[in-house]
Amino acid sequence: MLEYIISKYNFWVYIILLLIGLYAMLGKKNLVKKLIGMNIFQSAVILFYVSIGVKKGGATVPIFMGDAHAAHGHGQAIIDVASYINPLPHVLMLTAIVVSIATTGVALAVLILIFRRYKTLELDEIIKIRKDTGV
């Protein structure tokens, strides 16, 4: 059992982080907290993707080692697939990180708009103000 848990520990970590993020997004009353949760949530997904790319057994970072020009000249025979980590998830996650930070940026701008209007960032207070003023 322990073996089983340890053998997939990064998956467990990603699940825990995802749930922490999700909880903060749904359950926290402070809007900034929600955004912090959103960041955690998104980085959990990124962690999951990065974990997909991992190869055990001596694989290294996906940057070609050795003489690039020589390899370029002699074809691909020397490149061993097993010795490099799968680069595709990394590519995807570069995009995802940028997307996540862009979302955060937009969300923070909206947050400032909300603060200008309601002078508070607590969900329950905002809802109360909305109810009172009919806005």
Partner: peptide, 30 residues
């Protein structure tokens, strides 16, 4: 885990820009 590119981006964008944005926003609000 071997994802150096992702790590660099996260360090600069996530930890850097993200934190700056957050601090700016918190600074402007409560």
């Amino acid at each position: 885990m071997g994802a150096v590119d992702v790590a660099f981006t996260e360090a600069s964008v996530g930890a850097g820009v993200g934190t700056v944005l957050f601090i700016a926003a918190v600074n402007k609000t409560k």
